Amino acid sequence: MRGTTPERVAAALERNDPLPGTAGFAGRLDVESSALGDGPCLVRDVLGRQPIFFSEHDPSAWGFDPTELEDPRPLPAGHVQRLGADDAAESGSQRVWTLPNPPEFDDDETALDAVGDAVLGRVRAVDPADTAVAFSGGVDSALVAVGMPDAPCYVAGFEGSHDIEAARDAAEAMGRDLRVVKFAHDDLTRAVPEIVAATGRTNAMDVQIALPLYLVAERVAADGYERLAVGQGADELFGGYAKVANAPDDHRVDAETVRGATREMVATLPAQLERDALTLRAAGVEPVAPLLHDDVVAAALRLPGRLLTDGEERKIALRRTADGVLPDAVAAADKKAVQYGSLAARELDRLARRSGFKRRMDDHVGQYVRSLADR
Rank of each mutant, 00 (worst) to 15 (best):
V325L: 02
L291T: 01
P327K: 10
A283W: 14
A345F: 03
A298Q: 13
K358Y: 12
D349W: 00
R302I: 06
A331V: 13
A300Q: 04
V288E: 06
R354A: 15
K315H: 08
R353V: 12
H293T: 02
P287A: 12
L303C: 05
L343E: 10
A345W: 09
S355H: 12
E286G: 07
P327V: 11
R359A: 11
A329M: 12
D323C: 07
L351H: 06
V338F: 10
L292R: 08
Y340H: 14
R350N: 12
K358C: 06
E312V: 02
L303P: 05
G356P: 05
L351W: 11
P304H: 10
E286Q: 14
A345S: 13
E347I: 01
K358W: 10
R320F: 00
Y340A: 05
D328M: 00
A283I: 14
E347Q: 03
E312F: 04
R302H: 07
V288Q: 07
K358D: 14
A282Q: 09
L301Q: 02
E313Q: 11
R320P: 00
A331C: 12
R354H: 11
D349Q: 06
L308Q: 10
A337L: 14
L351A: 13
T321G: 00
A322V: 09
R359V: 03
E286D: 15
D349S: 11
G341A: 05
R353M: 10
D323V: 15
A333Y: 02
D328E: 10
K358N: 10
L303A: 10
P327R: 11
A282D: 10
D334T: 14
K315C: 06
K335V: 04
T321Q: 02
T321W: 00
L292G: 06
